[in-house]
Design a binder for these strands. Structure first.
Lengths: 229, 229
DNA sequence: CGCGTACTTGATATATGTCAAGGCATGTGG
DNA sequence: CCACATGCCTTGACATATATCAAGTACGCG
């Protein structure tokens, strides 16, 4: 069954779900605003895009590929705070510095726009201002949902992750994951072993199928949704 | 729209830690702006302030007492998303509806300002716009820190909670908690038993003292900070 | 084809949850 | 003023989900 955006949309959510506004991959402007032309930056797999506490001079949009943002705890644990998929805008901070690090999950292309330019344009252009607002609203909602995720059981977290990815990738039933089990584990606050076992278990219950380790077929979305908690 | 005032704020200068800007308890204006006069609402212990999905017509500021915002998962689990202490502004949503419920933890007083009025004023008043910006930035930071908390061990979560409370209550070393163990547990994603045992354990290690169940003396803050993860 | 990385699976450990009982305040009515 | 009820917290014994440690296996890439 096809996953519609509506399924997980929060009531009262802001218009303009950001991730639906895919950029034309050949265009180098953000939000369809000619004044927001930016540089296109190709990134290799695992390349660092920015580090925590570095000056946040640019705002980024994923044109292709995918990105993880994360924090490292002082004992070395890594918390992946978000996966950024094509269309997503990220790196827009309130302060002058990034509050997390960002790396490319796979080879891809990013659009870079100077933060100062974006903010200046937003002042005069209601459409851009609106989009900017939507980016921040989405960010807050995302963060709150992530907190909610982390109090759930392993099965609930993994099920929620799969549904989230299916929706954001606009996949019908087969999703191609660009990230490793370690990335997923660090996003869900679990270990790779638990993620792996949970997927195996979901496959055993016929909720999903695993034709390849990074290709996942959602066989029974409503069962997954029930598992979501 | 709000975005105008918001972007009018100097980029890179968030400043204004909201919770530090305690309102004068006798004044019924928000952000020290005369146009933002509002109603003062007394609330009883455990009184509902608003419910999830209800229209977000008002923005609230705690004058005295404290408030918990929370979500209920479909199976009945409760996730406390935040404690709101004197000075904190909450209930300002991006969409038209509240994304969580709010209840008074103890008897207290709230300042209510119509959301539409606040947003309208913010358009023309840079100072108010700046404050609003700061409220949202604080909210996002808070949510991200909460996610970070939830991947840690019980000891780390409890230690972090105590330090957070000490700081936000501007307490020197003795903090008076207004919330029950159940509230704390639901905030930290633990059970009351685990919270209780962890406090006992911290007392055993002389990191804290427990003269009463809701009075906690921080005996060794640097040890607590180390435990924080 | 072979190597290295990533993934899965198994055995065991452990942190936290669950269930159950008891203690300790606080307030209320006799 | 005492007896008792009530809510909140602590403590104990035990259960269990997830982490950890340790092999194996498959896959992708040279």
């Amino acid at each position: 069954m096809l996953i519609h955006a509506a399924t997980a949309a929060q009531p009262g959510s802001v218009a303009l779900p950001v991730s639906r506004n895919l950029p034309a991959p050949h265009l180098n402007v953000m939000f369809g605003c000619p004044a927001l032309a930016g540089a296109v930056m190709p990134v290799e797999r695992n390349a660092e895009i920015f580090g925590e506490d570095e000056p946040a001079d640019y705002v980024y949009q994923v044109l292709s590929g995918s990105v993880r943002t994360y924090k490292i705890l002082h004992d070395g644990r890594r918390q992946v705070t978000a996966f950024r998929l094509p269309g997503d805008v990220f790196g827009l901070e309130f302060g002058g510095a990034h509050d997390c690090s960002a790396e490319a999950v796979v080879k891809g292309r990013l659009l870079l726009v100077r933060r100062s330019v974006l903010l200046a344009i937003a002042k005069g252009d209601a459409e851009v201002g609106h989009r900017l607002w939507a980016v921040i609203a989405a960010e807050l909602r995302r963060s709150q949902n992530h907190s909610l995720l982390l109090i759930k059981s392993a099965q609930e977290r993994v099920a929620a992750f799969l549904l989230e990815m299916a929706e954001r990738l606009r996949a019908d039933s087969t999703i191609e994951l660009s990230m490793s089990r370690q990335d997923i584990a660090d996003y869900l606050g679990l270990t790779i072993e638990t993620v792996s076992r949970t997927l195996t278990q979901l496959a055993g219950e016929a909720a999903i199928a695993l034709p390849a380790s990074r290709r996942i077929v959602l066989r029974n979305c409503s069962a997954l949704r029930r598992l979501t908690g």
